[in-house]
Nucleic acid binder design. Structure first.
Lengths: 180, 180
DNA sequence: CCCAATGTAGACAGACCTGTCTGGTAATGT
DNA sequence: ACATTACCAGACAGGTCTGTCTACATTGGG
């Protein structure tokens, strides 16, 4: 046992921060559920804010890796990406987009966590831009903004509306937004 | 002075809750900035949760009243509503949709605040349904879901993207979502 | 005029928060 | 074998949180 304390902390933080919100979950609870000493926690993370950033960054890395495995190029890949998003957003236990929730919790745009959120959004948009360009879309720049919009909307709907609504409506919207 | 303590509390709560987040603003701060005694606060609101619900409900009422003053019917009114939304979301000081932010802060769907959010969403969607029906839209039910999606997306974008992006992208998306 | 409602000021309890610190244990690398 | 590193357990400080309480002032309706 032992060399995996950091991983246990990150896993527990991901579960609790995502499931219950960053502000409502304290360090004490994380170290208790991770089975870790307080000194160990502060050995690996200099503060709670640092842990929040690490949690978001790990989430970012995971999503980047997941989308990279999806097959296809251009529009086919685009549809695969949104199918995956819609699937996740309609799955049980979905509690909204981790980045959007974090942004809502940290009102100050200068907060480090907001930086990770901004990086994520920039990455997602550039992915959309690339896929639209591959497809020969007339205006990948404007198109990517529409698709970022759709991504956000699907996440919100998945969190607040009946499970299937987000998936079906996203499909319909994707069609309309792509064929212009 | 005096008979307006409740209003001062509500105004202060709206400003602070919206601007800095519900969890980060304490009762002590609200009563201090509202210039009100603690006993007075707990005389008007039985708990902080009750104040949060009152804040959201007031916001709901305000938006309902605002949309009611917009002229036109059918598609004209629809476009007026979204123009207003986009304008608000692109204005300085916009920190996201109060309902979406509150929903993100209260992870438990059974929290009273989440009830107000659900009521708001149901109202907005029924408004969309009505306007689409007036316009002779072939499927107001599905259409209203698309427009709720767009509303959410505009709010998120207004909070996280450069000011003008939300407005322009919303306009473009509205066109595509309405003409099928 | 008097009573009830509404207001102010602020102490207090009990809980929880983050972050620091001490002290001791187990695994690792050289 | 031994030093280093990672780890566990838990006390502690200093602050903030919600909600209750006492004690007193003001105001308006009957």
């Amino acid at each position: 046992m032992a060399r995996d304390a950091r991983r246990r902390i990150l896993d527990t933080a991901a579960r609790l921060f995502y499931g219950e919100g960053v502000h409502t979950v304290g360090i004490d609870r994380i170290i208790a559920e991770a089975g870790v000493a307080k000194a160990t926690f502060y050995h690996h993370f200099k503060s709670k804010d640092a842990l929040v950033c690490a949690y978001l960054t790990a989430h970012f890395d995971g999503q980047r890796a997941e989308f990279a495995t999806l097959p296809g190029t251009g529009r086919a890949k685009l549809e695969a990406v949104f199918a995956r998003i819609a699937e996740v957003c309609a799955s049980p236990g979905f509690r909204g987009c981790a980045f959007l929730n974090a942004a809502a919790e940290f009102a100050d745009p200068a907060h480090p966590a907001r930086g990770v959120v901004a990086e994520y959004r920039a990455w997602f948009r550039s992915l959309m831009r690339r896929l639209l360009a591959e497809e020969g879309h007339p205006d990948p720049e404007a198109g990517s903004r529409l698709l970022l919009l759709l991504r956000d909307a699907t996440a919100v709907s998945g969190a607040l509306d009946p499970p299937d609504q987000a998936r079906e409506t996203t499909e319909a919207a994707l069609d309309r937004l792509l064929t212009a």
